[in-house]
């Protein structure tokens, strides 16, 4: 008899709760815009935070509320962005794909003479102690991998020289690595561009030369030899204007430091020397 009661009571309890929940789901139903799910489908879902919102759901809600532009997601490809734009019923201009770029390729080829760092393998931690980590160059990549841990797309790694390097095919330009980097070494370049200057050193020539074997010494040979006038040397450092660069490769030939590279000719952002 007892078991009968037990079954009955639990059955009734379960039934009542089920009924209450069923009614409640009707009464408390919140209308959510079907567009929200459509937008969320287009987003990558990695919750990288590159858009500045808490995760992809937050970004989708912001786009839907028109608080964010349809191209708010820096990781979305042009196709995904145009699909979001179609959902929202607006036009979006095709944007040039950009990727993160590490302005240093020194690693073990940079001088480590005067500083030594013993501690946690983390660039932020290294920057907190006197001497700012193991590298003598004040502009270079420490290679302790803070950016590698920040990347949600497995697109940045420490290369064999001990400097960070971006896998341009995987990079989605969310720029979380640049935010994580305490040295500010990481910038971005157009994906289509070929010629790179992987150095950020602004020291004068002799100083830059003594710090690293692959540093820009500001000799201006590239600037003088560029037929398109795309390279300017400011603060002892060559910078390429990619709107003018024609990838002719004269600067690559002329660079006495073998620093300027055509990454698509060599296949990767690696030094020739």
């Amino acid at each position: 008899m007892n078991i009968f009661y037990a079954v009955l009571i639990l059955g009734i309890l379960g039934g009542v709760f089920g009924l209450v929940l069923a009614i409640a789901s009707k009464v408390f139903a919140v209308k959510s815009d079907p567009k929200l799910a459509l937008i969320l489908d287009c987003l990558p879902g990695a919750n990288c935070g590159g858009c500045g919102y808490p995760g992809c759901a937050g970004c989708a809600a912001a786009i839907l509320a028109k608080k964010a532009p349809v191209n708010a997601c820096p990781s979305c490809s042009g196709l995904q962005t145009s699909r979001i734009a179609a959902v929202m019923g607006v036009e979006v201009k095709a944007q040039e794909r950009r990727v993160a770029f590490v302005r240093c390729s020194g690693g073990s080829r940079a001088s480590h003479k005067f500083r030594k760092y013993v501690g946690i393998d983390d660039c932020v931690a290294a920057m907190k102690v006197a001497g700012n980590g193991p590298l003598d160059c004040a502009y270079g990549c420490l290679g302790l991998g803070t950016c590698v841990r920040a990347c949600k797309f497995d697109a940045i790694h420490i290369n064999e020289y001990g400097a960070a390097i971006v896998d341009q095919n995987k990079c989605t330009h969310c720029m979380q690595c640049a935010k994580a980097c305490p040295r500010g070494v990481i910038t971005d370049v157009p994906y289509a561009s070929d010629i790179m200057v992987p150095c950020g050193n602004r020291d004068k020539g002799p100083a830059a030369k003594s710090l690293c074997t692959v540093s820009c010494i500001g000799c201006r040979l590239c600037e003088k030899n560029c037929p398109a006038g795309a390279i300017t040397v400011t603060d002892n450092h060559a910078a390429i204007d990619y709107t003018k660069c024609t990838s002719c490769g004269f600067c690559v030939e002329k660079c006495p430091r073998k620093l300027i590279r055509d990454i698509h000719a060599t296949g990767k952002v690696e030094p020739v020397a």
Binding site: F17, G18, V20, L21, A24, S25, F28, V30
Partner: peptide, 15 residues
């Protein structure tokens, strides 16, 4: 049973 149902209900109500 009570707790599970309660949490569901509270969630819907709060939403």
């Amino acid at each position: 049973l009570v707790i599970a149902a309660l949490v569901q209900l509270v969630e819907m109500f709060l939403k």
